[in-house]
Amino acid sequence: MLELRLVQGSLLKKVLEAIKDLVNDANFDCSATGFSLQAMDSSHVALVALLLRSEGFEHYRCDRNLSMGMNLGNMAKMLKCAGNDDIITLKADDGSDTVTFMFESPTQDKISDFEMKLMDIDSEHLGIPEAEYHAIVRMPSSEFGRICKDLSSIGDTVVISVTKEGVKFSTRGDIGTANIVCRQNNTVDKPEEATIIEMTEPVSLTFALRYMNSFTKATPLSSIVTLSLSSDLPVVVEYKIAEMGYIRFYLAPKIEE
């Protein structure tokens, strides 16, 4: 028996909007720790890891570890039917091939049930090693989203270079080149507007902008994004989900042949 009640149902709506275009089908894993997902895109270039900790739910009942295969497009369709202020409850019985989403309006005057078919998905979890990153950039998520969008109108790839001067995002395309430098700036009034760079050594990596732009669909989940870079590892683009967990996107770099 599984029953997860999320008062801030809009979080789950935003999570689905953030990942549904990157991953078609995925297993959601339910355990005492929380509600989680790990899935790769169909090209095996990017990986998304989601965790919503059990403490973040108003009610969290998960009698035994359960893996539920869902089509994320279909799940997003169902969650779109929930109001932004609705409380969302997920329910599944042991051995059932369906999951039920219950939406309650804040005033309890409208209660909806949506039942969705589960699917068998063959997926293996990848081991993500703990890593010391050469550079960690923390910046406003809206700024990062703007940069990815702007650069993708010029080129297909972005070179992210971190030095003690700042973080530089560069692209080139048929019409020309673009460079955007964000300097460390932690003197702003609001912490969510700060750009903070922690660096142990300079790093420069190239990534496909198509994926970066897809990751920025998570912007509504957090005002801050963290980019963790090392010269020999995929970049981690992390959006923290307030009081609940995170959504992390890993993107393999483009490398010299």
Partner: peptide, 14 residues
């Protein structure tokens, strides 16, 4: 030229 690497080249199967 540069080639797209695969995430599976970095993270092994559990």
């Amino acid at each position: 030229s540069q080639q797209q690497s695969s995430i599976m080249g970095y993270f092994g199967k559990k």
